[in-house]
Design a protein around this nucleic acid. Structure first.
Lengths: 343, 343
DNA sequence: CGTCCGCCTGAATACGTATGCAAGACGCCG
DNA sequence: CGGCGTCTTGCATACGTATTCAGGCGGACG
């Protein structure tokens, strides 16, 4: 085995043609005769030749790669990533592979100045943005990305007049479905655990759906039943404990994410509440853990597989210069044991 | 905003120097005076210049990128990836970032002919191999990788005389610890759910540790208590059901992975066994789900954070031409409720 | 005053591929 | 026999950066 990697010139030499012909042959150009192509293919095989992507990309001015930027709350210690995003990551990877693109992934502190390094440096043809965080603080960066013409799509709440293309699930309907599910069982004071401000529009949409369902049923929306919480078990535990400490009466808990719900269930148990007997609970996301919780957690399924495909598809469309649109994906209420009061 | 990306020549023009000086200045060469460097930095800032990685990599003959190849059993439907590997992925990403490398990830069907495309095509300087699968079938590919001089490390069982560098946890001791934990509680017929052949050396090592602990306690190793299972909940459920159907008496279950354990617990419940009252259960991996199982699952913790660091560190060492060694990481038994019989 | 040296800069080139342009071979038609 | 079109190939060049080599400038020293 010779040490140096073979180049197209080596192949040309071996096959008795010019380097240009080698390049054409291997890229499937119709200009080269089948006979020559076969000879070149054999030579390439023999020398274990692989096209040098750096050279190729430089020449072609694209990279055949997408970048996935995963933002994290600086609060999380980092060893365990939000499982919902991991699930998205899996489906995005798969969608990329299917389209013949490589995927570069990078974890970003939400605070750092990331802008569009990957795209600017031509390491990636486009960017996928994923992660919770303070949306309003984030907005001006999105605008900057649009201004400099970076191709990107983001996962998150889909709202009117957003910069760039966004894909997200129908958080509003999801929130509505959960609240209705509780209302149908006779619950009247449903707590909401999760931030509910425009800084966190995904949670906010879930909250708005919940509030809408209450209003439609003629029930009051009591802000005393809402407690801020980021999407971690710890925050869920704290939020639940705080609500209990407030002494406010409640007869159901809607957590804005499954992690929050699991923390809340633990806190409820610690305070002697039975789930769902005393207090039914529901979450949002349908992470794999949800169906293994004790009791199995009612939640709202986001179709991550579909989401990954849509994200990648939209991004590739932008890269090709075709029009791309923001899109809202349907959700599905998964009723499990945690939310159903025994009759 | 001009459409075309700025190049080093544009910067040179603007700063009134040559392209060579721009390159030197931005790479921190001591050859350029501080005053000039500052002028160039300002010009680069103004034009939003970013080094073109493709050109840079072509010139430097390296990519500043590592590739992570994640193998999957063809059996899994693919929408959900083994959470343990996701956890590894998270820690590897982090370790890469810390070292200033980008990470390219790719899911591979175990059967496809992957060899070393990423490294050969210079998209990555080295490769990390991750995933279960038939080790013996896989071996000749590893040997081929070594033969063509591809830099790679793999996660898996660490055995004598393996091709290349491997990093894995101490599966043998882990298996031993679990078995001892059961034996101390008076269990004598401990079932083992998971493949136990040299085709799946990680599980096999766990099995060997288990067998060793039994032998040391003077207990017989009964092959009738072992059932093959791959690392999914479904397989765990099937394996457990089969063992019950066999009518073989058993008084504890050691599952070779947490997913298997969770499937097994469900099967036990379906057949009316209480865990841990009737049958204590333990798993392996300590995936995040384990502590949320019902009851919380006793398992063996693999330190994925450390594992990621060691993998990346070893790989970078190889890339730099320094010596790298296979390495076995310690494990820790996490005793939770699922394995402790009420007194 | 000439020479040498240290410090900084520019010209030129290489990295490996893809493609526009020109041209050779061949056949066909006028 | 010349001209034209088709099919295939080679030559030359461009992509943007990093580095080698050569040289200019000023000061110090003999």
């Amino acid at each position: 085995m010779s040490k140096a990697k073979a180049t197209s010139i080596d192949i040309a030499h071996l096959a008795g043609v010019s380097q240009a012909t080698v390049s054409r042959a291997l890229r499937g150009s119709p200009l080269v005769s089948e006979e020559t192509r076969e000879r070149i293919r054999a030579a390439a095989e023999q020398l274990r030749y692989k096209v040098d992507k750096n050279a190729s990309n430089l020449r072609l001015q694209h990279s055949g790669t997408l970048a996935l930027l995963l933002f994290e709350d600086p609060t999380t210690d980092g060893s365990n990533i939000n499982p919902f995003f991991l699930s998205m990551l899996g489906s995005i990877t798969r969608a990329c592979a299917q389209q013949g693109y490589d995927l570069l992934i990078s974890f970003q502190q939400f605070s750092t100045d990331w802008h569009a390094d990957y795209a600017d440096s031509k390491k990636a043809d486009g960017i996928i943005l994923l992660g919770y965080g303070d949306y309003l603080a984030y907005l001006d960066r999105l605008e900057k990305l649009v201004a400099i013409g970076t191709r990107f799509v983001r996962w998150g709440a889909v709202l009117p007049d957003q910069p760039g293309v966004s894909v997200g699930c129908d958080n509003f309907s999801g929130g509505q479905a959960v609240a209705r599910h509780f209302i149908e069982q006779g619950c009247r004071r449903i707590a909401f655990l999760g931030d509910a401000s425009s800084h966190y529009p995904e949670f906010f949409e879930r909250y708005r759906g919940y509030a809408e369902a209450l209003a439609q049923a003629g029930l009051p929306v009591d802000r005393a039943l809402q407690v801020d919480a980021e999407s971690t078990q710890l925050c869920g535990h704290e939020a639940m404990s705080e609500l209990i400490a407030r002494g406010e009466a409640f007869d159901a808990v809607f957590a804005a994410s499954d992690l929050i719900a699991m923390g809340a269930m633990r806190a409820l148990a610690e305070h002697g509440y039975k789930v769902p007997g005393d207090i039914p609970v529901a979450g949002f996301d349908d992470i794999p853990m949800a169906s293994f919780a004790n009791p199995p957690l009612t939640t709202v399924l986001q179709d991550t597989r579909r989401a990954g495909e849509v994200l990648v598809d939209n991004l590739l469309r932008m890269i090709r210069g075709e029009p791309a649109q923001s899109m809202m994906l349907p959700v599905k209420l998964m009723v499990r044991q945690s939310s159903v009061r025994p009759a």
